[in-house]
Design a protein around this nucleic acid. Structure first.
Length: 153
DNA sequence: GCCAACGTTGGC
DNA sequence: GCCAACGTTGGC
C-alpha cells in the first residue's frame, strides 16, 4: 500500500531545483528519531513525497518527489568532518538511516504554508500545526490528492 | 533577528 | 525516571 509523506528542507541547503539537477538524493542528515523511524520502518519504494521548503519566504510545498530506495545507513554519521557525525555510530551498528528520493516535478508556483492553513480540507495536516518541527511527516492520501488536484498549479 | 515550541541531555 | 536547562527549528 503506497503511502504519502511531506519532507522539509531548507532551500538554501537543498532545494527542489537541486533535486531536479541531481535527479535523486540520499535524504541524509536527519537527526530526529521520529523522522528516522519513518525512513527506517515505513517509507517504501514508490511512496510519494510533498517536497517542502522551510525557513524561506514563502515557506511551502515546492514540488513532488518519490522514494526510490529503502533505508540505507546515513553516510554522514561516519564522517568525522561532517556536522552530522555521530560518535555512537559504527558501520556494524549504524544509528541513522535514510532513504533515497527522486525528483518528480516542480510546481509552477510554490504552495504557501499560509494557503494550506486557510484550506478547510487540509485542517488536519501536521505541517500547519503550531510548533510542528518534525522534518518528515505522514500525509493522508486524501490530503495529497487534494493538494495535487486543487493547489498544484 | 526574535522567540515559542519542541526534543534532547544530564544531574539528581 | 523526573524535570530543568539547553539547543534547535522554523514561522513570523
Amino acid at each position: 500500500m503506497k503511502k504519502f509523506w511531506l519532507m522539509k528542507t531548507e532551500p538554501d541547503v537543498f532545494s527542489i531545483d537541486d533535486l531536479k539537477k541531481h535527479k535523486s538524493t540520499l535524504w541524509e542528515g536527519v537527526r530526529n528519531y521520529q523522522a528516522r523511524n519513518f525512513m527506517m520502518n515505513d517509507m517504501k519504494i514508490g511512496d510519494e513525497v510533498l517536497f517542502y521548503h522551510s525557513s524561506t519566504d514563502p515557506s511551502g510545498i515546492a514540488g513532488l518527489a518519490k522514494v526510490i530506495s529503502e533505508k540505507k545507513p546515513d553516510p554522514t554519521q561516519f564522517d568525522k568532518k561532517s556536522s552530522y557525525f555521530d560518535s555512537k555510530a559504527t558501520k556494524q551498528k549504524p544509528v541513522w538511516y535514510c532513504v533515497e528520493v527522486e525528483y518528480v516535478k516542480k510546481f509552477p508556483h510554490i504552495i504557501p504554508l499560509a494557503h494550506l492553513k486557510k484550506t478547510a480540507e487540509l485542517e488536519d495536516m501536521l505541517v500547519i500545526k503550531q510548533g510542528q518541527r518534525l522534518s518528515i511527516q505522514p500525509v493522508t492520501e486524501y490530503q495529497f490528492q487534494w493538494i495535487i488536484q486543487n493547489l498544484a498549479k
